[in-house]
């Protein structure tokens, strides 16, 4: 068949491209993604190699106690704090906790949210009603307030904090996935799979989920940014991790807010770290959204 031959010739020229690899290609073409990824990589390196990169330990006293700690100098580029500790070292070590909280809390929220959203969207009916009303209930409480409440309730252990922040993201993920599944559930290709006799679990995992998950991935990236802000916020309110030796950006801000007048560097550098790490996740999330969103596809 001549048509087939012509098509064969045409097909062998180009590389096969799946939707995911297409999306990946678009991400790589987006300069914002590169900036975000660069920033994120920088913070990850700081976190992983903190002991090598930081000139001093986070609790190490290198200067003397001072009511008005010295600002940046050549020796201490970010200056010293009131206990004579090196701010640069403390900010570098702080990346560990922020990234950890971002990752773990979103992982917790995502896994719970995915299960609830998938069950809700796939089964529908009464199950869906119950789950979604509960999610509505959670959404009616501002996320940060909910986190404060949970931390007060569960205690200020590191895991409890991550859990509390994670919980606040559950309804967002669940609702997003449910909506996405509802849109896909009646799609022709799902009907086609059903008509072939594909069993329910395979229907969900092979056909529906891979086509519904994209917006959730975008949201997860953005949620990490929010988680970093949340943990900083909790620390600022004195609800941060109760282990005083854990360096945490939000805690620096809280401890030194009163010194903003005289020793701005104590607030400025940790604040900058928060801003840039959040920016990194936001840039990445936006780039992913652009790459994945079918409406922007040519």
């Amino acid at each position: 068949m001549s048509i087939a031959e012509a098509e064969a010739a045409q097909l062998s020229v180009e590389q096969p491209s799946g939707l995911w690899s297409d999306a990946w290609r678009r991400v790589r073409r987006n300069p914002a993604a590169w900036v975000g990824a660069g920033l994120l990589l920088f913070f990850v390196i700081c976190a992983v190699f903190a002991p090598l990169l930081a000139p001093y330990g986070p609790q190490e006293t290198v200067g003397s106690l001072a009511a008005v700690p010295p600002g940046p100098t050549a020796e201490y580029p970010f200056g010293l704090d009131e206990q004579g500790r090196d701010v640069l070292s403390r900010v570098i070590y702080g990346a560990r906790l922020s990234l950890l909280v971002g990752l773990v809390s979103v992982a917790i929220g995502l896994s719970l949210g995915l299960v609830l959203g998938a069950v809700s969207g796939y089964f529908g009916g009464r199950v869906d009603g119950v789950i979604m009303r509960f999610m509505d209930l959670m959404l009616s409480i501002p996320g940060f307030l909910l986190a404060i409440g949970l931390v007060t309730l569960l205690g200020r252990g590191l895991f409890q904090i991550m859990f509390a922040i994670g919980i606040t993201t559950v309804p967002i993920f669940a609702r997003l996935l449910r909506g996405s599944i509802l849109a896909q559930r009646e799609a022709d290709y799902v009907l086609a799979a059903r008509s072939v006799g594909t069993p329910g679990f395979r229907l969900l995992t092979v056909h529906i989920l891979p086509n519904s998950i994209a917006p959730v991935i975008v949201q997860a990236t953005l949620a990490m940014a929010t988680a970093i802000i949340d943990v900083a916020g909790l620390s600022f309110l004195g609800l941060g991790p109760n282990d005083p030796s854990l360096p945490e950006w939000g805690k620096f801000l809280a401890e030194n807010a009163a010194r903003l007048q005289n020793s701005a560097h104590l607030v400025f550098f940790p604040g900058f770290a928060v801003v840039f790490s959040v920016l990194a996740f936001n840039l990445l999330g936006d780039a992913l959204r652009e790459a994945i969103d079918p409406k922007l596809r040519a």
Partner: peptide, 13 residues
């Protein structure tokens, strides 16, 4: 199916 665009799972080869 009618619609050759929606009746194939876009994520499967």
């Amino acid at each position: 199916f009618q619609d050759p665009y929606s009746s194939l799972n876009p994520r499967q080869n």
